[in-house]
């Protein structure tokens, strides 16, 4: 029971981070049709900026609040000057461009911060552990587990009830129609891309106290979040949520029960799901 609960908590907290980054990935794909290979690098950048702010100010919260907007600003430049020329061209070119961007950012981070791993301590309020079922768990993990659904519901409400959210969904479904009714699609695209980047960077900042901050963290999470959005259904929010949870739990329970297979499990899941449901769990059939 205790082992189960520990696994559950670990799986959920990793799943929540995956969810944050997958949300951005799937939104950008859903609206713009771009699968962003560099999305994990933006996540990593969020973690490093948080680390930097912690070094300067000693406060995790400042890093969490100030880091992500910087990443979003960078991605505005990326969208306008690098991605925009490729809209309407071969999808593979966009994938290649973001692949180049990933190489650039990942090694750029090494250039600035070095190849070593760094530790960011959780903020005062969230450090320490709580006792649950006669065992103690890091408080920060519980915080992530609780935060995840809150962010999820917040985003869902944003897309369902706000004007901006509705515009986004309209543009995602039918770009031409959105243009006809007066949505300025280029501006919308920039905003969506920046929003996705912001989400990724928030995920990165939140991940900083959860795992060590290092140059490989982007590479690892991008592959897993690709799997999340594909099995969940590209462009689907519930899909991203379920996919992230499944992958997070697979990760923690897999480590316990099938240590040999654990690394392969996500890929096996990917293949199986795509065989049974080619569009993913929540993907719209076309």
């Amino acid at each position: 029971m205790e082992a189960f609960f520990a696994n559950l908590l670990n799986g959920l907290s990793w799943g929540m981070l995956l969810f944050l980054i997958s949300m951005g990935l799937t939104t950008v794909f859903g609206v713009m049709g771009v699968l962003n290979f560099a999305h994990g690098s933006l996540f990593m950048l969020g973690a490093y900026l948080c680390l930097q702010f912690v070094r300067w100010t000693g406060s995790f919260w400042i890093g969490l609040i100030l880091g992500p907007p910087l990443v979003a600003a960078l991605s505005v430049l990326i969208e306008r000057f690098l991605l925009r020329p490729l809209y309407g061209r071969d999808v593979s070119l966009q994938l290649l461009l973001t692949f180049g961007l990933m190489l650039f950012l990942d090694d750029g981070v090494r250039l600035i911060w070095g190849a070593a791993y760094h530790v960011v301590n959780p903020p005062e309020v969230l450090s320490g552990s709580v006792a649950l079922f006669s065992r103690s768990y890091p408080l920060y993990r519980l915080f992530l587990v609780i935060l995840g659904p809150i962010v999820g519901i917040g985003l869902w409400a944003f897309f369902t009830y706000t004007l901006w959210g509705k515009l986004l969904r309209a543009a995602a479904t039918d770009r031409q129609m959105a243009e006809i009714v007066g949505v300025r699609v280029p501006v919308l695209f920039t905003a969506v891309f920046a929003f996705g980047a912001w989400l990724a960077a928030v995920g990165g900042a939140l991940a900083a106290p959860h795992q060590s901050v290092g140059p490989a963290m982007g590479e690892r999470i991008i592959i897993e979040s690709f799997i999340v959005v594909v099995i969940g259904g590209m462009g689907s929010f519930p899909g991203a949520f379920v996919g992230a949870l499944v992958l997070g739990l697979l990760h923690s329970f897999g480590t316990t029960f099938f240590p040999q297979l654990q690394m392969a499990l996500p890929y096996i899941l990917l293949a199986v799901i795509l065989l049974i449901r080619p569009r993913g769990l929540f993907g719209a059939e076309s």
Partner: peptide
């Protein structure tokens, strides 16, 4: 050197 290679690819 991947910084340069990434930039070249872009």
């Amino acid at each position: 050197w991947m910084v340069f290679l990434g930039a070249i690819l872009i």
